Simulated scan of single mutants.
Amino acid sequence: MQLITKSALKLPVTYSFRALARSYATVGDKIPSTSVHENSPGNEVDLSKETAKGKSILVGVPGAFSPGCSQKHIPGYIKNSDAFKNKGYDQIFVLAVNDPFVTKAWGEELTDKNGKSSIRFLADSTGAFAKDLDLLFDATKVFGNERSKRYALVVEDGKITETFIEPDNTSVDKSDATKVLEKI
Score class of each variant (00 low, 15 high):
2 Q>G: 02
3 L>I: 11
4 I>R: 10
6 K>G: 11
10 K>F: 11
10 K>Q: 14
13 V>M: 08
13 V>W: 07
14 T>Q: 14
17 F>W: 13
19 A>S: 13
19 A>Y: 15
20 L>R: 15
20 L>T: 11
21 A>D: 14
24 Y>N: 13
26 T>N: 04
29 D>S: 09
32 P>K: 08
38 E>Y: 00
39 N>V: 02
41 P>Q: 10
42 G>D: 14
43 N>F: 10
45 V>H: 11
47 L>A: 11
47 L>F: 08
48 S>E: 06
49 K>R: 12
52 A>T: 09
54 G>D: 04
55 K>V: 05
55 K>Q: 06
59 V>S: 04
60 G>L: 04
63 G>R: 03
64 A>P: 00
66 S>F: 03
71 Q>T: 13
73 H>C: 04
75 P>F: 03
75 P>L: 06
77 Y>R: 02
77 Y>T: 01
77 Y>Q: 02
80 N>H: 13
80 N>L: 14
81 S>H: 15
82 D>I: 11
83 A>L: 09
83 A>M: 06
85 K>D: 09
87 K>F: 01
89 Y>K: 09
95 L>F: 06
96 A>L: 01
98 N>I: 08
98 N>A: 04
98 N>D: 09
99 D>F: 01
99 D>M: 08
100 P>H: 04
101 F>D: 07
101 F>Q: 12
102 V>P: 00
102 V>Q: 01
102 V>E: 11
103 T>D: 05
104 K>M: 02
104 K>N: 05
105 A>F: 14
106 W>E: 06
107 G>F: 04
108 E>G: 08
108 E>K: 13
108 E>R: 04
112 D>W: 04
113 K>F: 10
114 N>D: 00
114 N>E: 13
118 S>D: 15
118 S>I: 06
122 L>P: 00
123 A>F: 03
127 G>L: 04
127 G>H: 11
129 F>P: 06
130 A>D: 08
133 L>M: 15
136 L>M: 12
136 L>C: 00
137 F>V: 03
140 T>K: 15
142 V>N: 03
143 F>R: 14
143 F>S: 10
145 N>I: 12
146 E>M: 08
146 E>R: 05
147 R>Y: 08
149 K>S: 13
149 K>F: 01
152 A>E: 06
152 A>K: 01
154 V>Y: 02
155 V>M: 07
156 E>A: 09
158 G>I: 04
158 G>P: 05
160 I>D: 08
160 I>M: 13
161 T>D: 12
162 E>D: 15
165 I>C: 07
165 I>Q: 03
167 P>R: 09
168 D>R: 15
168 D>T: 14
169 N>D: 10
170 T>W: 03
173 D>V: 11
174 K>Q: 07
174 K>P: 00
177 A>W: 03
179 K>W: 07
182 E>S: 15
184 I>P: 12
